[in-house]
Design a protein around this nucleic acid. Structure first.
Length: 864
RNA sequence: GCUGGUGUGGUGGAAUGGUAUACACACAGGACUUAAAAUCCUGCGCCCCUGACCGGGCUUGUGGGUUCGAGUCCCACCACCAGCACCA
């Protein structure tokens, strides 16, 4: 019996109880049966789900349920990316240990995930802060150390001189520490690195083996890896005992246009020159202040100072001045560049600022002169000019000739370089995986033996903002050297949390395994569909690909690439509203507390605060965030409308890969549709239970048309499901209900058969998106036992067939009329009918028709 | 700054090179109601013509190009968004 009114709280609890009791989503390995591993990026347990989570997991769930209905053996797991900085920040703010805070958050968010009805196998849950998980981080770290893939080297970090602590980039605001306001300094400390660059060639090449990844993401990874072919060029100098300053360039063809050479502030030659030059020493010191991010370095004002030293041009023998410039990065190439102001924008700017010579040597679109201001065309490839024996050569010829001449002198060779840098994984933080190393005065850095793993993190410490609390905790710190047995000190750095997320998808396959992975992973891996935010397009995905290749080379897996298909979902955005306080600061107001004002055509004219009715200013539409107070809490949404409405709105409001704009009225619209569906089913329940199959031969013309619309919407929706465009699947479902609603209310017999068939199609089509309401209606209408096990609907060719088709008539591509012809009309008949169409004739006038284009079933274009 | 993306009615969006604006939301008018809410029905890109039809012109950020035909493909430009290696 279907209740008269739609009550989501009741039916959702009922459906969820059924799924839990029957354990329908517990996945089992079934060799020989086609598997489907559907994975969403696991959440950081920040406290409550946000709309981005709801969107991410709904997309994943719709795909998982769709694949299940197609007959695949589906695995959809969930877990927690449980280490990280926010837990330490919460600890400092509230005095609660990160572990307790994290576990409370997990418990609450897990409850929320259950309320949303996701088809998850909770038996495989993983939390990365559990020793039984992170011990394998440590274990693989040690294997990598043995193979030389992990190594120790110094790296640059943000140093807060007041708190005496290392800061994350996020904790540096405008070059200052977030808590102290002190100007941050760059500091070099020893860190462990993973040699991802050893895999650079493979990481680049295998992008071509990933047809299921968005082109955009592959392109971003390709550019990030940044393979470039160039020439390493030596500039001899007489500093100290003399030597060669090496630079790397991709534009060796412009070598004759080099007018100075610049090195990074940390370059040995800069440091040498600074010894006898106080101004230069001061400049180098100045370069140490501020943050370390690439964006920050790239937008800073170009500054530089001459060293007073010169280097020798390797081909002409000319003396070139040597400068120190803040736009040269020590970490890329050789930490030094040859400057060709005529053909490089940054060199051009620098040369103009410091009055250095500019010497054009390439004939480009802009000619072979380079007057200010800069034009992008100056950087074009072209033929060499003003370059002596190289004049007239094109780019490739010039590079070959110059590289050969340099090589003969021992001052250069062709070289491949990468933008990709090795992955520094040491973090000077508490809440992460301990790095399994012991420092011994006599033995040095000693790896912890496997039998002593895991190195367990004490989980009751509370950080205070001044460095890592592990450094003040002797029970962790003090240990015996595994090599000599004498007292030693444990490493207190922990691992980057990207390590945790680089292989969690393997662990889901093998819950409880006594090794890192076991044979069960061979059945499930690779992940068939990975779903997550576009913000992870580079780092997380690249690290996971690298880690998988390392596991492969250690014989732990046969797969090379972890994710066969990737869907990067867009952000959830909402309008922002604010009032300016007396101090000029913006007070952001939550959209839930706002009433919109519109004119009589529905255009937005302003907004007021509900509580006082007075106007507020409108900011832009931005990603939901705490700082702009424009987040909408999913919990309130679920409680007011139910999970199905939340899921339906999320799927309907935008395609998965685009930004989704929050809309209260859109949510209300989604709810209205579900209520309409429920009421339709309730009102027709006896009829629908009793009706038979429609007989195409005896349907009236209007009923035939309704049935045609139903099957046409189904045909389109199946195509859209396949390409993961769920917003149009939903719209297809709405079209089906609209079509059924057009059948005359009192009409019985054949009409009931059309109703039953249409609703049966609609329930199955929407069941991956709104699983609760479809579960209950499917069962109550006697369509079958469990909609999860129902056969996926297929359109009926007979229902789609028409006798007559309407064709559009165009004249020279412009729409001028319509004709109706039999579906099987031949070319001649269509041409004749089109030319007879009165309005089309009017536009053809008496010109001769040169060509007639016919697109079957669509249009006729008369070209004259 | 570098790299990647996006731009279509009042709004979210649809359109597999072939009728641009499907499906919704908002808005307006009507029905029901003592009234309101809810619900149902109708209309709804902009401009011109018309008493009303019939009809015409324009329109997918801007400017060019390819094509019988371009929102879709190509080139240039503008605006906005994301990532930039210690947020996750």
């Amino acid at each position: 019996m279907i209740a008269e009114s739609y009550n989501p709280q009741v039916i959702e609890a009922e459906a969820q109880r059924h799924w839990d009791e029957q354990r329908v989503f517990a996945a089992r390995e079934e060799p020989g049966r086609e598997k489907y591993y559907c994975l969403s990026m696991f959440p950081y347990p920040s406290g409550r789900l946000h709309m981005g989570h709801v969107r991410n997991y709904t997309i994943g769930d719709v795909i998982a349920r769709y694949q299940r209905m197609l007959g695949r053996n589906v695995l959809q797991p969930m877990g927690w990316d449980a280490f990280g900085l926010p837990a330490e920040n919460a600890a400092m703010a509230g005095g609660m240990a990160p572990a307790g805070w994290t576990h409370d958050n997990i418990a609450y968010m897990k409850k929320q995930l259950r309320m949303l009805g996701f088809a998850l196998d909770w038996d495989r849950e993983v939390a990365t802060c559990q020793p039984e998980y992170y011990r394998w981080n440590q274990w693989l770290f040690l294997r990598m150390l043995e193979k030389g893939i992990v190594y120790l080297k110094t790296g640059v970090v943000n140093w807060d001189p007041v708190d005496q602590t290392v800061l994350a980039n996020e904790q540096v605001i405008d070059g200052r520490g977030w808590r102290t306001g002190a100007v941050v300094e760059k500091r070099e400390i020893p860190m462990y690195y993973m040699a991802i660059t050893r895999y650079a060639e493979e990481l680049l090449a295998e992008l071509d083996q990933l047809p299921g990844w968005p082109e955009q993401v592959k392109l971003m990874q390709k550019n990030w890896i940044g393979k470039s072919h160039g020439v390493r060029i030596g500039f001899p100098h007489s500093v100290g005992e003399g030597g060669i300053l090496w630079v790397f360039t991709t534009r060796a063809d412009t070598l004759l246009g080099a007018t100075y050479v610049a090195v990074a502030a940390e370059h040995p030659l800069a440091l040498y020159a600074a010894k006898s030059n106080p101004d230069l020493a001061a400049f180098i010191d100045e370069c140490r202040h501020g943050g370390v991010t690439e964006a920050e370095l790239a937008i800073q004002e170009k500054k530089g100072l001459p060293t007073g030293l010169t280097v020798v041009h390797p081909l002409t023998g000319e003396q070139l001045p040597l400068w120190v410039a803040n736009y040269v990065l020590m970490g890329y190439g050789e930490g030094a560049v040859m400057a060709v102001p005529a053909h490089d924008e940054r060199d051009f700017e620098f040369a103009h600022k410091f009055d250095l010579p500019i010497r054009p040597v390439i004939r480009t679109r802009a000619g072979d002169d380079t007057p200010a201001p800069w034009r992008d065309a100056y950087a074009d490839y072209g033929v060499c000019v003003h370059s002596g024996k190289y004049d007239g050569l094109d780019f490739t010829q010039a590079v070959d000739a110059i590289a050969a001449d340099l090589s003969a002198k021992g001052l250069g060779e062709k070289k491949v370089t990468w933008r990709l840098r090795d992955w520094g994984i040491s973090r000077q933080r508490y809440w992460g995986t301990p790095i399994p190393i012991v420092h011994c005065e006599s033995c040095g850095a000693v790896p912890v033996p496997d039998e002593q793993l895991p190195v367990v993190l004490p989980d009751h410490l509370v950080p205070d903002g001044s460095g890592n609390p592990l450094n003040k905790y002797p029970p962790f710190l003090d240990c015996d050297c595994p090599a000599c047995g004498r007292p030693a000190r444990r490493e207190t750095d922990t691992m980057d949390t990207f390590v945790d997320s680089s292989w969690y998808f393997f662990r889901y396959c093998t819950p409880g395994a006594g090794a890192m992975v076991d044979a069960r992973a061979d059945y499930w891996m690779p992940v068939d569909q990975y779903v997550g935010g576009i913000e992870h397009a580079i780092l997380h995905l690249l690290y996971s690909r690298f880690w998988t290749k390392v596991m492969r080379d250690l014989g732990l897996t046969a797969v090379s690439e972890p994710f066969a298909n990737l869907l990067t979902q867009g952000m959830v955005v909402a309008p922002t509203f604010y009032r300016e306080g007396a101090d000029g600061r913006k007070q952001w107001v939550n959209p839930a507390d706002i009433a919109a004002q519109t004119d009589d055509r529905g255009r937005l004219t302003g907004a007021t605060l509900k509580s006082d009715g007075r106007p507020v200013a409108m900011g832009g539409i931005e990603k939901m965030s705490k700082s702009k107070n424009n987040g909408v809490d999913p919990q309130a949404l679920i409680e007011q409308y139910g999970a199905d409405t939340a899921r339906l709105f999320m799927m309907f409001a935008a395609p998965p890969d685009q930004a989704l704009e929050w809309s209260d009225s859109g949510v209300a619209g989604a709810y209205r549709f579900l209520r309409r569906l429920w009421i339709y089913a309730a009102e027709h329940q006896e009829i629908l239970r009793a009706a038979g199959q429609p007989d195409a031969a005896i349907l009236s013309e209007p009923l035939r048309e309704v049935r045609r619309e139903v099957h046409e919407a189904l045909r389109q929706a199946l195509y859209d499901f396949g390409r993961h465009q769920f917003n149009t699947v939903v719209s297809g479902g709405m079209k089906i209900l609209n079509a059924l609603g057009r059948i005359e209310a009192g009409e019985r017999g054949a009409a009931d058969a059309v109703r039953r068939e249409g609703l049966g199609i609609l329930l199955r089509l929407l069941s991956p998106i709104v699983p609760h309401i479809t579960h209950v209606l499917w069962r109550e209408l006697g369509q079958g036992d469990d909609v999860l096990n129902a056969a996926w609907p297929v359109p009926d060719a007979a229902a789609l067939a028409r006798n007559l088709v309407t064709l559009v008539v165009q004249v020279n591509g412009k729409l001028r009329g319509q004709i109706v012809v039999p579906a099987d009309a031949g070319r001649a008949a269509i041409e004749q009918a089109a030319q007879a169409e009165p309005n089309a004739r009017r536009f053809v006038e008496d010109r001769p028709i040169r060509k007639i284009v016919i697109v079957p079933g669509k249009l006729v274009n008369l070209v004259c």
